[in-house]
Structures are given as C-alpha cells and as structure tokens.
Amino acid sequence: MKEMREQSPGGVVGSRRGDPPYLAPDYVATRLRAPKEPLIILPSTLSDTTGPAYGRAPVGELDNDLTRQHEGEPLGERIIVHGRVTDGDGRPVRGSLIEVWQANAAGRYTHHLDRHPAPLDSNFSGAGRCLTDDEGRYRFVTVKPGAYPWKNHHNAWRPAHIHFSLFGEAFRSRLITQMYFPGDPLFWQDPIFNSVRDEKARQRLISSFDLETTVPEWALAYRFDIVLEGRRATPMEDH
C-alpha cells in the first residue's frame, strides 16, 4: 500500500482539483461540520472506479423543462441552460444523470424550510433532471433564479445560482456544485462562492452568456460546461 498516505483536510489535494477546503470560517456552517483529522488517500479500487449506471434510470421527456411541469408557465425570465460534461482528459461523459434544483424568479425555494418572504410560484417547482447525450451534452429550460437572503452574516445574499448534481462514470467522479451567472454584483460578499480559493477554479463556476443558443423572441441562453474527475485518479502533483 505504498500509495496510501494522509492529507490535511484543506490541503493540496483539494486545491489541486480546485475544490474548496472543508473549513471556510466565513461560511459559518462549516465551523461545526468541517472534518479536521487528516484525510486518508485511497488508491483506486473497483469500489470507486465503478458507479451507478443511470443510463437505465427513467428520465421523463419533460424532466429537463422546468417551465412545463405545471398547468401554466412560471413567472420570470425564461432561459436555456446547456453545456457539455467531460472528464479531465476532455472525453465526453455519456448517458450520465444530471439533477438540478433552484429558487424561483423571486428567490424562493418550494422547500418547506425556506422562510424567505418572497412569493411562491404555483407553476414552478424548481427541480429537473436529464441524461447527457453521446457527446456529453445536456440542456435545461427554466427561469432565471432570484438572489435570496440567508442570514450567514449581516445582509448576506446568495448570488443567483442553480444547484447541479452529477454522477459521471464512477463513484470517484460524483460532484455536487452550483452554477452562477456572469457579472453578478453579489459575488464579492458570498462566502460559498469565494470558498473556492483558486481564482481560475472559481471562474469555472460561472456560466457564460451564449448569444448563439438564445432563441429569438423566446429565451436567453447560458452555457455551463462541467469537468468531472475521470474514472481513474489524475496523477498527483509533487510539491
């Protein structure tokens, strides 16, 4: 087991991948929940180079259209969110499940614990899913989520974002992240966005406005490409 070693929880391995550290004290909830013992580095085994095959999972035809899940259309700015999912070597991640959830245009989740006094929209649940195609592409139709307050610090507001859950090809590639919108004025004060210390990695969380994919007289479009860990571990960098 010569490959096995230990690693401090916020240390170089996390930053190699661009991930945030567990402990980001400005994000108050991390203080009691961030592990502090050294992480044990697991060499690749079948247990993490395999993963659930969601190609067989039933995904409804309209599951990727969050504007057509109810009788009427939700209020808000209709948008198309699309992109490509690849692994670290640029290979498409095919037939892989993506799940998304978000606040409505007013910044309110349908979740029963969301107490933000903004209106609910009976035509918007804010949850969707789809499978990537043979080139790793996905596409959602939704409305642009609103910013919302969250009490982490005085006058704390989350920048508009869509939560993404991805499986990729293996247990190893599992990722839950958030997609942001370009030019959001709330970035500077958001400790979750800024928990990603590396500037370049942080920019990878921001979608780009995509004029080419907009549909005239109907919807604006944003592109969000996602790079997952491959089936095998990427080689360690020496420090």
Binding site: R17, G18, L175, D198, L228
Partner: peptide, 8 residues
C-alpha cells in the same frame, strides 16, 4: 485538469 469545483 480544469475540474469544476465542488459547492455545498
């Protein structure tokens, strides 16, 4: 690798 970072 340019991997997309994790978020809560």
């Amino acid at each position: 690798s340019g991997r997309t970072p994790s978020q809560t």
